[in-house]
Write a protein that binds this DNA or RNA. Structure first.
Length: 920
RNA sequence: GCGGAUGUGGCGUAAUUGGUAGCCGCGCCAGACUUAGGAUCUGGUGCCGAAAGGCGUGGGGGUUCGAGUCCCUUCAUCCGCACCA
């Protein structure tokens, strides 16, 4: 009889559930530790082996921290709103809540089978009204706040209205859209609609008309991070630009703080860098250029104001508001055409045409603010409407794009910074002395930048400015399966519902499609209006709404009166360890930081950054298998014989392949097309080819954790996932390696049992040798867990068990701490062994062992003795030997003579405890 | 183009501060037990070589008594951003 993992795992999973072993409460006597997993979207396909990788790592860490005396919050929930359920609803007519519920149930079963230590009493689901009540609540707060740049925090819009009544908006420095200056008197004269209109430009959640990423196929608008290369990330449908009225979140107000906060958090460099790029801070200045024969001036943003004397023309984006106004009669038609062509292009087309130079002269001229010269104004696609001011001063001498443009249109190129040959190519570097630049001549670039900004500000024609690439987040989706906005319209003016009306529940609809007039699905709902009959907003919120504060909600998941109680948030504070995929770098992880900062400003949370440390688990790739079909036949040739034939590789289900040998019968049954397949075998076997690719249904390389658990048990699966390699690294899944870990589990079991599988624990004191093995393992495993190096910890356990097996160790003194340590990684067998040792309570409540420093140091050291850096022999010496003793022993060792060849060594290096190197 | 990461046996990987390169596992080879093995156990396994020995961490160069680790350079792969002024 061997270890019966099926019964043991089932038994303890039942025990944990029944005893609520992992339930957690506020406990001021113990330090808190919050370990969070990115909650999953429960898709219909269920989990594959790649998904739980991060969950296993975080579970090990949670269990370890618990045994180290921390009060560990380790919750789980579901990101339950989303497109797939809705698409499915459109196809089948089934309510997305039904599919979602079904998928959640399946996820839960799968998760339970892996033996996680979640406190399920804190589960959240974003589609649950008791949860999204607080998503809506936060939206109302965002609507009712603006961002005060002077205090660098969110403040109530009601305060702002008071300021307007006192002194207009001249002294207000807020993050806002374009608002003309007005006085207190003018403010007081405005009617309600006009006032609301002005305030809307200040709100952190605001309604605005803009060009959006419209996906006709999905029938909705998408955020920038939901679009990749002109296609929707989900589904891969084309995305075009369209002007629409949308809700926005003013995340740009927080750009500076989002950037600064990165300095304080322990995230990977690559992830921080991605966020820095996404925020895209650049320092420079604005400069106004007057337009000849016009009142208007053109504001540009430049990071190189020092090169202003090199500006020989200007370029506006085709969408720039002044284009219409300044274009002369002679050029009107060409300009209109250019604008039209540019506007009709999709983002995708624009991107593929990056290399081609195009543009159109407007006929208008600007006046250079320093030289007074006339410079022509062009429009061109390479200037983006959404960045900076949508207009540039073109400096062909020192900007490669402007250079290409100037050459194409035969415009003058002036060198203003020494270095390089600007006739050939632009000199973009910021090193060199200024020339042809009036008052700046002779200055270094950096000095010149400071000087010119001073001059611009003095003359009132520009000022130093920090610009960001980050855009405000579009918050409306024309979808059904999402949070309804707590918003109604009174004479076309949007107002938020009172908090007491929350949650505003998602209404039933007859179909999940837009209406015939193109309105979102909510417009189909009957009586979608307030008690007073005002129409409610028909858009719903995007996916990131519900995931932006779920980690806060876990702290106090059942609270119906508050998002989170002050007591709970004061105790749990923030997430100590967050584990999840890096694909959320510019989506969830930036929105959540923004959302959290806002909640911090209004006093709901205590920490400005929500996730102290973040670990990105690497993707588990699939290992695909191939069979080779001889073209035009139904005959398949084995891998090593295929060169003799003209073949086509076909993906074959990895589950009917074992160690690259194909199960022929299973293959014939797998697909009717192959039912009469013929094979050309080698050594009587069909050998498949293989390749590493993404784990995907279409490649038939998906490995399901359920099957592995059925065959090897959850503990083996957990250990193997960790054993594969570093958590953060992408690595291929190869099922065959799991056997080794399975053997280890059984070997561990046998340490506690005799040949007849009877429990065999000796109460005798352990030998020093046995204790040394144990304590070295404690030291190694503790260090590895702290460093999130779980793969090396597993291998340390293997070494430990191998060595103890060799000594036939059965001492309680050794086996008990070992059971405790292993229980983080393999909780079921850990729990079973713990109980075999006579304990009644869960091993989760035990303490992680400490190591004894004396037992981890050896009293003899094996010195490798090398000659000229090459190791030649080994020498065992007491660890307290002096340098001289080691040197003498090394040189007088019998093996040394051979390498010394009678010569005297030039130099002998002895590193105590490490190495001896003899130089000859 | 810019930024980030990674290159070590047939495969996944290890080597915490510059100090024995290849731990642990898979695979492979040999053996034991067995009617049998895709079970279990034991031993071997970086490459070349009979051995002595030599070579070896993507390539080239450097620093050092000593380099997988540090520096320069180059190549390859992956990821992110991309006409960002």
């Amino acid at each position: 009889m061997e270890y019966n993992f099926r019964d043991v795992e089932k038994k303890w999973q039942g025990f944990w559930k029944e005893n609520k072993t992992y339930r957690v409460f506020i406990d001021h006597d113990r330090p808190k530790y919050y370990v969070l997993d990115m909650f999953p979207y429960p898709s219909g396909a269920g989990l594959h082996v790649g998904h739980p990788l991060g969950y296993i790592a975080s579970d090990i860490f949670s269990r370890y921290k618990r045994q180290k005396g921390f009060n560990v919050l380790h919750p789980m929930g579901y990101d339950a709103y989303g497109l797939p359920a809705e698409q499915y609803a459109i196809q089948t007519g089934q309510h997305p809540a039904v599919t979602t519920e079904k998928n959640i149930k399946r996820y839960r079963e799968q998760l339970d089978r892996i033996g996680f230590s979640y406190d399920w009493d804190r589960e959240v689901r974003t589609c649950d009204p008791s949860y999204y009540k607080w998503t809506q609540w936060t939206f109302i707060k965002l609507f009712n706040h603006y961002y005060n740049n002077k205090t660098a925090r969110a403040e109530p819009v009601s305060d702002l209205a008071k300021i307007f009544g006192r002194s207009g908006n001249v002294d207000v420095d807020a993050a806002c859209g374009f608002v003309p200056e007005f006085t207190a008197v003018e403010w007081l004269k405005m009617d309600e609609g006009e006032k609301q209109d002005v305030l809307m430009h200040y709100r952190l959640a605001y309604l605005s008309d803009t060009l959006v990423n419209w996906c006709p196929r999905l029938g909705t608008v998408l955020a920038n991070d939901e679009v990749r290369e002109g296609f929707s990330v989900r589904g891969g449908h084309p995305v075009v630009r369209k002007k629409m009225k949308q809700w926005f979140l003013r995340i740009t107000a927080y750009a500076e703080r989002l950037l600064a906060g990165l300095e304080e958090i322990d995230w990977s460099d690559s992830l921080k860098e991605i966020q820095r790029n996404w925020i895209g801070r650049s320092e420079g200045s604005t400069i106004f250029f007057g337009v000849k024969h016009h009142q208007e001036s053109i504001e540009v943003f430049t990071t190189r104001p020092d090169t202003v004397f090199g500006a020989t023309f200007m370029v506006l984006s085709p969408e720039h508001e002044l284009v219409e106004k300044i274009t002369t009669e002679a050029y009107r038609q060409q300009v209109a055409e250019y604008v039209k062509v540019a506007g009709s292009k999709s983002d995708r087309e624009r991107m593929t045409e990056v290399k081609t130079v195009s543009g159109q002269f407007t006929g208008a001229f600007a006046v250079h603010p320093f030289s007074g010269q006339d410079i022509p104004i062009y429009i061109a696609e390479y200037v983006l409407a959404g960045y900076g001011t949508g207009a540039i001063m073109a400096v062909p001498g020192h900007d490669s794009r402007d250079h290409a443009f100037a050459r194409h249109f035969g415009l003058p190129i002036v060198q203003v910074v020494s270095g390089g040959d600007v006739a050939e190519e632009s000199y973009d570097a910021t090193e060199g002395k200024m020339m042809n630049s009036g008052f700046m001549d002779g200055m270094e670039v950096k000095e010149a930048i400071r000087a010119v900004i001073r001059k611009l500000e003095f003359k009132g024609i520009g000022q130093g400015k920090v610009n960001f690439r980050l855009r405000d987040a579009i918050f409306s989706r024309q979808r059904y399966w999402g949070e309804p906005f707590p918003v109604y319209y009174k004479e076309g003016v949007p107002y938020v519902l009172p908090e007491s009306d929350l949650p505003l529940e998602l209404p039933p609809v007859d179909k999940y499609l837009p209406t015939e007039t193109g309105e979102p699905p909510l417009a189909r709902a009957k009586k979608w209006q307030t008690k007073d009959g005002y129409p409610l907003e028909c858009n719903t919120m995007p996916g990131f709404a519900g995931s932006s504060a779920y980690y806060i909600r876990y702290m106090d998941a059942a609270n119906n009166n508050q998002l989170v109680s002050d007591e709970a948030v004061s105790y749990w504070q923030d997430v100590d360890l967050y584990v999840g995929g890096s694909e959320h770098a510019t989506g969830h992880l930036i929105y959540a930081r923004f959302w959290n900062k806002f909640l911090y400003d209004i006093g709901v949370v205590k920490k400005e950054e929500p996730f102290k440390k973040l670990i990105n688990q690497g993707m588990i790739q699939g290992r695909s298998n191939f069979v080779y079909r001889v073209k035009g036949t139904n005959t398949f040739v084995s891998l090593n014989l295929k060169e003799a034939y003209d073949t086509m590789p076909i993906h074959v289900d990895v589950n009917i392949v074992d160690k690259d040998v194909l199960d022929l019968e299973a293959f014939r049954k797998w697909n009717p097309e192959f039912s009469d397949a013929e094979f050309i075998l080698e050594d009587g076997k069909y050998i498949c080819g293989w390749e590493i690719e993404k784990m995907s249904k279409s490649f038939h390389n998906v490995v399901n954790p359920d099957d592995l658990i059925e065959k090897y048990g959850a503990d083996t699966l957990r250990l193997y996932e960790m054993f594969l390699g570093p958590v953060e690294q992408a690595k291929p899944w190869d099922t065959k390696g799991i056997e080794g870990v399975f053997r280890f589990i059984r070997k561990l079991w046998r340490l506690y049992h005799d040949r007849g599988n009877n429990v065999h624990i000796s109460e005798e004191p352990a030998s020093e040798k046995e204790l040394k093995i144990l304590h070295k393992t404690i030291q190694k495993v503790s260090g590895d867990i702290e460093r999130f190096s779980f793969n090396t910890a597993v291998s340390a356990f293997m070494v430990c068990v191998n060595e103890l097996t060799e000594l036939q160790c059965s001492k309680r003194e050794v086996l008990e701490p070992l059971a405790v340590m292993i229980s983080s990684f393999a909780p079921h067998i850990g729990e079973e062994l713990w109980h075999i040792l006579g304990h009644k309570e869960s091993v989760a409540l035990s303490s992680f062992p400490d190591w004894d420093e004396k037992l981890v140091t050896d009293d003899v050291v094996v010195y490798p003795v090398s000659f000229n850096g090459k190791t030649r022999f080994k020498l065992e010496l007491p660890s307290n030997s002096s340098k001289e003793e080691v040197e003498r022993a090394a040189l007088s060792a019998p093996e040394a003579a051979k390498w010394l060849q009678g010569k005297d060594p030039k130099k002998v290096i002895v590193v105590p405890g490490k190495i001896v190197n003899v130089v000859i």
